[in-house]
Design a protein around this nucleic acid. Structure first.
Lengths: 210, 210
DNA sequence: CTCTTATTGATATTTTTTTATCGATAATTT
DNA sequence: AAATTATCGATAAAAAAATATCAATAAGAG
């Protein structure tokens, strides 16, 4: 526990967590690194190593207690501390994310949305109001929000990003297919669907051709 | 060109492509690996190596001709060959993806959507009809579709996945937060938002604490 | 025309990540 | 009670990826 955490490990921890939650639902009380590895198509040593960063609940011959491991992972991933966020861009994707209740379990609380389209303003989705972007700086500052989610079209993404940064946002989850330029210290996580698609497509080609 | 392509490189190629397309729009005719690396926060040798997998258009002192590089990347990523796909789950996210026209430029053509909710069936979004899932096997087989996109709730994802596989789908783009079990040879690409979020959150914590 | 500079692309080195091996441990079987 | 087995966790080895170095090249400056 508390070893240095590698980027890749951090990538996999939420995947383990999600699997464990499924298994817990099914009533699985104990689970071994070997079986996790088999299900996810990973190496069992890797799984054990990854888990050791967040937990120390493993017992020889038995494996990990599902519930304890879930708790440890949630704790490590900071899913218990709720973090407020705003969405900018209330188009299709923005609305979809607003309507999705699953983020709560990841410790993300979307408090409001913003859009340039006045026709959308004042509307509520899933109990969350859509405001005009003009109100973004004030509201974001006042509520001390540090996470911004950009679901606007590519051409507006950079200026929205700039506004978010000026308004005190430190971390940006970017769904627009552009590379944002940010000041040093600001975090950008790109949700790049093109990349996923490229990998899928590449693998599919191998199957179809090879 | 035509060297062995690593997973990581494949991950980055669409990112380069997207940046290059931006730059091309701005009228940039030539671009160097160094400047790409600076913009994206990567190492310039890495960029050069990555690009060499897909193109051989670089000239010393000048860099790459933007248009040629874009073409080479699109070609390498097979964005010119259109691949048909179906979406299963016409909830918020499914509708958002149906309404998004950007996939065309990645060679993905969503031909139809399916849902269990009869109320949605028959409706059209962005010119694409929503059918009842009962019709999925027949339609998918008849149209010889190899890609399925799952945007259904987690609890339905596995059974949808099974149906897709039975219907001849070879590659699945999974937006549901579950790990799907598939027969050998079937490709699954998980669009795991929890993972992105975990990384964002982790980095943010470092900033806030450190 | 020569020198300087920015760049490519190849090779070498370093770092990171993954995988293999092995002893320790605890549950189960004989 | 001893042997067997499934597992963990640590360390070692191997593989993959990232980065550094350097010769070659071509554009532009002097």
């Amino acid at each position: 526990m508390n070893k240095q955490i590698s980027k890749r490990t951090l990538y996999r921890l939420p995947v383990y967590l999600s699997l464990l939650q499924e298994k817990a639902k099914e009533g699985v009380e104990y689970i071994s690194a070997t079986s996790i590895a088999n299900i996810l198509g990973l190496n069992h040593v890797q799984v054990r190593k990854d888990l050791s960063c967040a937990s120390s609940a493993g017992r020889p011959k038995v494996g990990y207690e599902t519930k304890v491991l879930i708790k440890d992972l949630q704790n490590f991933l900071d899913y218990n501390n709720t973090k407020d966020a705003v969405i900018v861009g209330a188009g299709g994707l923005g609305k979809a994310l607003l309507g999705y209740d699953g983020f709560k379990s990841y410790g993300l609380n979307i408090v409001a949305a913003f859009d340039v389209n006045s026709a959308l303003c004042g509307k509520q989705i899933n109990g969350k109001t859509i405001f005009h972007v003009d109100k973004l700086p004030e509201l974001t500052k006042r509520m001390n929000i540090h996470i911004g989610i950009i679901t606007a079209p590519a051409e507006n993404a950079q200026s929205i990003c700039d506004t978010l940064v000026k308004s005190g946002v430190l971390a940006i989850w970017n769904f627009a297919p552009v590379s944002l330029t940010v000041p040093r210290g600001i975090i950008v996580q790109n949700e790049n669907m093109a990349t996923s698609l490229a990998i899928l497509s590449n693998k599919l080609n191998e199957v179809l051709r090879g």
